[in-house]
Design a protein around this nucleic acid. Structure first.
Length: 268
DNA sequence: AACAGCACCTGTAGGC
DNA sequence: TGCCTACAGGTGCTGT
């Protein structure tokens, strides 16, 4: 599922578990938790979740021991308080708090990961800056020496963290940049445009509670609304909202990539 | 060192 | 209807 806006939506709701104390947990698919379940539980049992926040696409729990726990939803993960019957077929981890409330990690494709970061170790050390402010985005892209296609650079979480396939395509469309343009060939004017567009796209999607294409749901099992505002993602063959040219789909770095061949001319 | 390619999983949509 | 293939919003490992 989820890119930054979807994770942000989940995190805002999940802040309701701040102050709760973890009592036990059930693992239905051991590879979801990236360490032996026994040790994971031992480190967290009786501990309070002091803070819930987001970093890139990671849901982060600060534990009163000083450890952190991250939850990454990857493609199909979701966290729900009241799973449906169907959800339970895909339950991977069940957190049980001291007040008897439960939080379920549901994940059809089993790609999602839950990881504990001991207090003394570096926390999420490889992530780039958040793409929420124009200056940060511009600085990150300007200082990146990569010659890769701009689309690939936007998906590189060490350059910017939180942009995924949908919002990369949407941002490139709004900036009128062809996805196969090498980062080094993007003009300063276009790079500035892109740097202002990405935060706008992110904030708009957050306001729409994220994009729901199939699996993404918030903690109340409700989808977002941002899919109604996509300009190119998933619009293959439909007329461009600006010029009516048919939206095309190509593959860039093994990811489906949508763009308007007229608005986003490839300048070599 | 940077980068490409594939592995990880299951469900669903579309073609025949 | 049923079988088969291709594809899906992400990341991390491996090899070049």
């Amino acid at each position: 599922m989820p890119e930054l806006p979807e994770v942000e939506t989940v995190v805002r709701e999940l802040q309701s578990i701040e102050g709760k104390v973890l009592d036990s947990l059930v693992s239905y698919w051991d590879r979801t938790i990236e360490e032996p379940v026994k040790g994971f539980l031992k480190a967290l049992k009786g501990r309070e979740v002091s803070r819930v926040f987001r970093r890139g696409k990671y849901i982060c729990l600060e534990i009163d021991s000083g450890d952190f726990v991250t939850i990454h939803l990857r493609m199909t993960g979701k966290l729900v308080f009241e799973p449906t019957e169907r959800d339970m077929n895909y339950a991977r981890v069940e957190f049980i708090f001291k007040d008897k409330s439960k939080l379920y990690f549901i994940d059809i494709r089993k790609f999602g990961r839950i990881k504990r970061w001991p207090a003394k170790e570096p926390f999420l050390p490889t992530l780039g800056p958040e793409p929420l402010m124009e200056d940060d985005v511009y600085e990150a892209l300007k200082s990146c020496r990569s010659v890769r296609d701009i689309k690939k650079v936007l998906l590189d979480q060490s350059v910017l963290t939180g942009v995924g396939n949908i919002y990369a395509d949407e941002s490139l469309f709004l900036s009128r940049i062809h996805p196969l343009t090498s980062l080094q060939k993007v003009s300063t004017v276009k790079l500035k445009k892109l740097s202002s567009v990405i935060p706008q796209v992110m904030h708009a999607a957050i306001n729409n509670m994220g994009t729901t294409l199939s699996d993404y749901r918030n903690t109340k099992n409700v989808g977002g609304e941002n899919q109604n505002y996509l300009r190119v993602y998933g619009q293959t063959g439909l007329p461009c909202s600006v010029c009516k040219t048919s939206i095309e789909k190509i593959v860039v770095g093994q990811r489906g990539t949508h763009f308007c061949p007229k608005c986003q001319r490839q300048s070599k």
